[in-house]
Design a binder for these strands. Sequence first.
DNA 1: AAATGATTCATACGTTCGTTTGAATCATAG
DNA 2: CTATGATTCAAACGAACGTATGAATCATTT
Lengths: 227, 227
Amino acid sequence: MAEVRSVDTRERILDAAERLFMAHGYDGTSMRHITGEAGVNLAAVNYHFGSKESLMQEVFRRRLDWLNDERMRVLDALEAEAGDQAVKPSAIVDAFFGTLLRMADDETRGGMTFLRLLGRTLTEPSEFIRAFLAHEYKAVMDRYKEALFRALPEVPKAEIVWRFHFMLGATSYAIAGTDALRLVTDWQIEDEDSTDRLDRLVPRLMSFLLGGLRAPLPQFADAAGAG
Amino acid sequence: MAEVRSVDTRERILDAAERLFMAHGYDGTSMRHITGEAGVNLAAVNYHFGSKESLMQEVFRRRLDWLNDERMRVLDALEAEAGDQAVKPSAIVDAFFGTLLRMADDETRGGMTFLRLLGRTLTEPSEFIRAFLAHEYKAVMDRYKEALFRALPEVPKAEIVWRFHFMLGATSYAIAGTDALRLVTDWQIEDEDSTDRLDRLVPRLMSFLLGGLRAPLPQFADAAGAG
DNA sequence: AAATGATTCATACGTTCGTTTGAATCATAG
DNA sequence: CTATGATTCAAACGAACGTATGAATCATTT
């Protein structure tokens, strides 16, 4: 079996696809863009991956398998360390979002490119992508939800689930828009260079997420409670 | 001038485009989908709007003109009411995000469809869309940033800008994913029906946003301050 | 009623899309 | 060296894309 060439080609395709899907979206990226940038023949994608959809799935699987395994490992370690005590909310949030954000510095795992792709894709419309991500994420999301339920027993579960949702949004947006949103907001932060910005994004975002997670419970207009 | 027909056709196209762009994205929606769903001739889009890009811009302009004017009006009123006092952060946040979220109940202004379109588009890759939104949003963003600077004089401006960014993300995600993210997280909140969920989204999100905005400032690993 | 300008219509243009095909080329095994 | 299976290649497929065209139809004015 001559796997040397094919592995090279596969990875070149995956790298190019990751970058182009991030920059132009799924529908905005053609197979000819991908194969052109990867320096391989047009037919190589269908030969190695079967279809464009399968390629997209493989782009995510390559990174998410490690990320979600790592998230599980970190949470395992936290719970083992805590014994019969509850794990602190800040540790849970860091295990989920911090583990994600620290991928930005690891180019062997996609770095910022993959993070921004993931951030954008979570709000992308394509049905098959959402279905695929739902499947990939289900187990780890359930684990973390349960951990937060135990860590915050006084907060209604529905509220925790919503706030997890909000945290996901703030994070994915912060990642996806690290360059893009500069356009929308057009702010200038004069005293920080770009490397600075990334280093400080994690503590900044963590403060925000924890502040939101532990905010006072909302008061609803009607009488009923939240669960 | 026979404007009756053209106005009807224009609005039918805009309504269909708004819905389809929301559901399938810009690149994922064809002119034939739009004109088919609107029940008009294929050439009508180019006749009335010139191009697909111009149509997209008009879809947004139709809603954003009102939204951002309204945001300006509300902030004007708040500042007039406060006199030389500072406007409360919670009032500013409500003026910006609450005004947006309350569009969900106003079908004459696009309702949830437009909100979800906007939420998704803020992370979409197409260059011309981001450039257009940047232009449409610039004035109102500057006004609100300044208002938050005055409301939170003890918080570094860079930190406020970042947290505004995070709030935008949480909000746009909460909107865009009101249905979609159910797939990813697969949570079930048994005791709330869907109308309930929308009514309670606003106070829930507001609590989260304010908690994040007023969270303790992050501690950076190195010595330098944040601005 | 005739004329005019706005709008709608069917149809076609050239391009690009994802995918397929079958031959050519490669690396390895017998 | 030859056979074999894996991979690469150029080329083409039909379908769908955004856009343009010119005739037909409509509403309005003279």
